[in-house]
Design a protein around this nucleic acid. Structure first.
Lengths: 334, 334
DNA sequence: GTCGATCGTCGAAGCGATTCGACGATCTGG
DNA sequence: CCAGATCGTCGAATCGCTTCGACGATCGAC
């Protein structure tokens, strides 16, 4: 493996000059720069990451903590993760993957050993034990999701409050007078994961604003859970003409359950989902939905992190506006 | 941040002694070991990863390359990934996440900069361009999946040939005389991803062995694709009494399609799936299935890697035996 | 009782980069 | 035409750890 000294000799310059060519931190004549670059190519030189990290006090690696738990839609997590990796690479950084189960100790470890320069945490809860740790670590961090007290932190997420409201607005506009929200499994609410409660809040508030009847229902992420909720819902509220679903895995089972109950979508029942576009387009009928912009969130999270790493100020809270796409699953009530 | 020298002073020993306490590479008296460990705790010492990597020529990081492409079931990938992370941590290693899209250059980069000690590659194709790169990199590697020529490589995967055969064996035993395999989307076959063709081979061979009629059908991973295949299949082969499904996303849509076509499972049609247990248990009726042991594969992949890193010899090929669980979706033909 | 091993610890030499101050050479402005 | 900036490059120090050889002390064997 070629070292910087080899390159320097090959190009007839000092090692420091090679370093400056690479980092651009001092000006170098066009001519020597070319000569150095040629030597780098000729020798296939690649700087040693550890040496670099030691000398510069920068590892060019960011940690990404992914959730392992139940009740969260896995493909969305994967979308986040890959978009974070891709965005990080565009900023010349790599991504170290951590799982929830190492918990706070994991954060302490990767920061304490200078393994990573910064941290991205997904699936933040309202009272997340990692938040205080993050605050007292000196490393920049970005949270995907909002804790109860986001002071001094940089957080980003879809504006679920607005998303919940947007669904109701759309349905109200169509003329619906009673709507129901079918949400996450109970454990998600018990954990006080922010996104679930925020959707509920936006949904409820908008319904009140429009003066229409509304109810909220947790739903297990299984086919049986979907069936149960669908049945109960239709029995309890015969006048129900529209539902909002915010729970990816049960979207399809719910549609099936409604169909079996003799309610056709959208003629007898309008359905709006909060889910990734792929899922909404994949079902039959295609669903009117508010997209979960996983890729956008991942990309922006990295952007915020880089801003902080480079000493720029980053906004404390970033809420992405929801975008509702009308597809085939909503219509005026009959 | 405390350094090893601080710990050494605090404990009244030489820095090297601290290092040996941590690494266990030389014997240390019980007493000084305790003293050193106490100082480490007192100062909250955490070794600098970069310095360590530089001096020891070991980063204690493994790279994991995850696929980004279509036609592969995302939750399974995520299961692999998390089990790799967890297993790696048990061996005191971390995981650097790479995506397919950096391709071979990414492998060269992380190996060349000594960022990682070893590499795990998922979703290997029969003629994977990364294989030659892996061979010429000096770093140990483990492939999840098998290329056409696995010589000199360490590969691990579920034995899909045996899995395909196991499904047929089970159906033949029940008395079925015509079976169909509903497989991956066409693009997966075109890529020559090993697992798809191996399942097909095992399926076909077993059917021949039992002397029963068999056909194989690619299937787009959409609801429409499922519907189409189901309809065509039933029209083409009126005597069909059993199907094997090896394509997670369409499992539920297929079941729905069969039901709509008036075929009830398992009375009119037996269904065996090759999919994660969670999915098989989640549907109604619960599916007889061969599990995709993602977690086991991830864990063993890490084990193999560690063996190689520690100079032990690792087997070239590891094929995990399939395990078929009988649930409610298979029965003798009527 | 002595000699060679073994044990526990130390000191110093790297590992391979970055970065700071220094230093000629070239510009610039008055 | 000269003082002071600026530019391009160099050399040396430094980052924090591991590891090798050395060395006194303890041990076991004869």
């Amino acid at each position: 493996m070629a070292k910087i000294e080899d390159v320097a000799k090959h190009a007839g310059v000092a090692p420091s000059t090679v370093s400056y060519v690479l980092s651009g931190k001092r000006s170098i004549t066009q001519e020597t720069r070319q000569r150095v670059l040629a030597s780098i190519r000729a020798l296939g030189y690649q700087p040693h990451a550890g040496a670099r990290a030691l000398a510069s006090n920068r590892s060019n690696v960011v940690a990404l903590v992914v959730p392992l738990r139940t009740g969260i839609h896995v493909p969305v997590i994967m979308q986040f993760a890959t978009s974070v990796v891709i965005a990080a690479r565009e900023h010349d950084h790599d991504v170290l993957l951590l799982t929830q189960n190492e918990g706070e100790a994991g954060l302490r470890r990767v920061a304490g050993t200078s393994m990573v320069d910064a941290i991205i945490v997904m699936d933040v809860e309202l009272h997340d034990p990692r938040v205080p740790v993050l605050k007292d670590l000196d490393r920049p961090a970005v949270l995907i999701g909002f804790p109860a007290d986001p002071d001094g932190l940089t957080c980003i997420d879809l504006d679920f409050t607005a998303a919940g409201a947007a669904c109701v607005d759309h349905l109200a506009e169509l003329g619906h007078r009673r709507v129901a929200l079918i949400g996450s499994p109970p454990e998600v609410y018990e954990r006080e994961t922010g996104f679930a409660s925020r959707t509920t809040a936006g949904f409820t508030e908008a319904a009140a604003r429009h003066g229409i009847a509304a109810s909220v229902h947790a739903c297990e992420a299984t086919q049986a859970g979907a069936q149960k909720v669908a049945t109960e819902l239709l029995a309890e509220h015969p006048d129900l003409t529209a539902v909002v679903v915010h729970n990816e895995p049960v979207v399809a089972p719910l549609l099936a359950a409604f169909r079996e109950a003799g309610r056709s979508v959208p003629d007898d029942l309008s359905v709006v989902a909060i889910c990734p576009d792929e899922l909404a387009e994949y079902t039959m009928p295609a669903l009117t939905s508010v997209a979960i912009p996983a890729e956008e969130v991942g990309r922006q999270a990295v952007g915020l992190l880089m801003a902080k790493l480079n000493g720029r100020k980053a906004p404390g809270a970033t809420l992405l506006s929801p975008h509702l796409t009308v597809r085939a699953s909503t219509a005026p009530p009959q």
